[in-house]
Simulated scan of single mutants.
Amino acid sequence: MASAIGKLAVITGASSGIGFELAKMAAQEGYDLIIAADEPHISDAADELRAFGVSVESVKTDLATTEGVKSLVESIQGHRSQVELLMANAGVGLGHGFLDQDLDSIRHIINTNVTGTMELIHAVGNLMRSQRSGRILITGSIAGFMPGTFQAVYNGTKAYLNSFSFALRNELKDSGVTVTCLMPGATDTRFFERADMLDTSVGQAKKDDPADVARVGFDALMAREGDVVSGFRNKVMAAVANITPAEMLAEQHRKMAEPGSGKH
Rank of each mutant, 00 (worst) to 15 (best):
D188W: 12
E57I: 10
A88P: 05
E119S: 12
V73N: 14
S15D: 06
K70V: 07
G95P: 02
M118E: 08
R107N: 06
N89Y: 00
T244L: 13
L168W: 06
E84C: 11
V73I: 13
G13A: 08
M118S: 05
F20V: 10
A220H: 03
E74C: 11
V213W: 01
M222C: 12
R190N: 15
R129V: 09
M118A: 08
G148I: 07
A159W: 00
L198I: 12
Y160T: 07
D32L: 09
A250T: 04
F192Q: 07
M237D: 09
L94A: 13
G217A: 06
T117D: 01
K24D: 09
E258V: 11
M256N: 06
D212K: 13
A223M: 03
K24I: 13
E84A: 14
I243H: 01
S105V: 01
A26N: 08
G226P: 05
R50P: 03
T66N: 09
G148D: 02
G125H: 08
I243F: 07
E74N: 14
I34L: 07
Q204H: 03
D208W: 02
N234W: 05
L86S: 04
H96W: 05
S130E: 15
D38Q: 14
V73S: 12
A88R: 12
D32G: 12
A239G: 12
E57K: 15
K60F: 00
D100R: 00
S55A: 11
V153Y: 00
G144L: 07
L168F: 05
Q204K: 15
K70I: 05
V59M: 04
M237T: 14
K206L: 14
E74I: 05
G231S: 08
G134H: 13
G260L: 00
I11K: 11
P245V: 13
V202T: 09
R190I: 10
G17H: 11
S141D: 04
Y160S: 07
S141M: 12
E74T: 12
E247H: 01
S163N: 11
E74W: 08
G144R: 08
S133D: 09
K7W: 08
G185H: 05
G97F: 01
Y31W: 03
G78Y: 07
I34W: 05
L127M: 15
A195K: 07
F191G: 05
L99H: 01
V69T: 11
Y154H: 12
G53Y: 03
K24T: 15
L161A: 11
Y154R: 11
H41M: 06
